[in-house]
Each structure stands twice: as structure tokens, then as C-alpha cells.
Amino acid sequence: MFEKNKLSSPIAEFNGVSFRYGHGSEILKDIQLTLDPGSFHFMTGESGAGKTSLLGLFYMNHLPTRGRVRLFGKAVDTLSRAEKAQIRRQIGVVFQDYRLLNHLNAFDNVALPLRIAGVKETEIKRHVSELLAWVGLEKQLKAFPPELSGGEKQRIAIARAVINRPQLLVADEPTGNVDDAMAKRLLYLFLELNKLGTTIVIATHNQNLIKHFRFDQLHLSHGRLERINPNIRNNGQ
């Protein structure tokens, strides 16, 4: 389904990164982190620990209030708007609330990143149909999000995030609304992407998945990042 990605420099580097919303207290404190190409991470932590905020820094939803974030070797605070768009096209995001476009059917929702990237419609038709079949939604191509269950929406959101074979995939609770069997099936999709070179960060509370797949863990507690697995270089700890 996918071709292998080839990158050698770190996908993401966080150097002394802190973040707060407005004038509130710091949610993330002095984060030191390097993600190597092709690595796979679970992000864990209690609700409100800052997982979603940290994921947001990966896809430039917001900028750090202190410190520096580098993505694909480039400091995000120095990027032009065109460069930001180009980098974002290399990042797939699964949002916790899916963020599907209700006026587009399942096919068009999944096709959106490809259309943004300017892929030909014949290619889009082939890839999208194939991927939707893989996540078990081949009969829901023309269904609109309000007509779908939570689990179906989640699978569409995942398909949309992976359709353009991103270099980095960040997913916020991507298996929160599916049963364990489907959760494992989706994780195997992420795993297939990872084997092809995509760096993956998945925020989850699902201990079954964490135990089953035994990947590196980035644990957030009181705004600080804790290194659980030695495969991740956590420079600050």
C-alpha cells in the first residue's frame, strides 16, 4: 500500500520547550526530545497532562512560549508560510474529536490531503478506495460523517491522516471509539506505515495496546516529559 520513506536527520527536536495558553500557567515545562526517523512512540499521561498540547506542537497548531522546536531539521519559528504548508503536508494528524468535514462524504474526507497536495484524481480514486476498504469502510464511501458511528468516523479520520504517507504521524486517542479487535487492526496499519519509515506518536490511555505492542513511551506528568524507554533520547533527563 505504501512505499518506503528515507530520512536520516531527526524528524522532531524539542529543545527546552515550554508552552502555556495565554497568560495561564505552563502546561508543558522544559521539554527535551528528539524523534528519530522510523521510531514509534506511545504518549501517555493522565487527562490534562498536556498530551494534546504537546501533539499540537508537532503539527504547528501553536508555537512554544519558550524554547525551540525543529521539524525535519528546520526551526518552526523561522519558517515562512509556504514552508509551514510544505512541512504540514509531511505530517498526518488524527484528532481526538476526528474533525471530519460534515459536508464531504467519507471518500472526499479521506481524499482531502491528496487534493491539497495536488495529486491526480485517478490516483486519488485508487488510493482512497483501497485504504477505505482496508479500514473496513468500502461500503461507506458516499456516507457523510453525521450518518456514521463514532468508530467509523475514527477510522475515516485515521485513513485521512495516513493517506498521503506522512513522514510523521501524530494521533490523539486514535482507538478511543473502537473495540479491541479494531484497535489492534488500526495499530497494525500504523505499524505497516512505521515499517516503511514513518515516525509515529500515538497518545493513548489504552494499556492493552501499550502492553501488546511494547513501543517506547513518552510519559507526561505535571507538564514534564519522562523517558520510559531507552530507544528515545530524552536529552533533558
Binding site: M60, A85, Q86, I87, R89, V93, R99, A117
Partner: peptide, 16 residues
């Protein structure tokens, strides 16, 4: 605004 923000996050250029 929300849809525009989402499309931006997917890498859409300002021109798009």
C-alpha cells in the same frame, strides 16, 4: 474559521 484551520493543518497553502 475551523474548517480553514483544519485544511491549513493538512498542509493547504494560503493560495489553495
Amino acid at each position: 474559521r475551523k474548517v480553514i484551520s483544519l485544511i491549513h493543518m493538512m498542509g493547504a497553502s494560503d493560495f489553495y
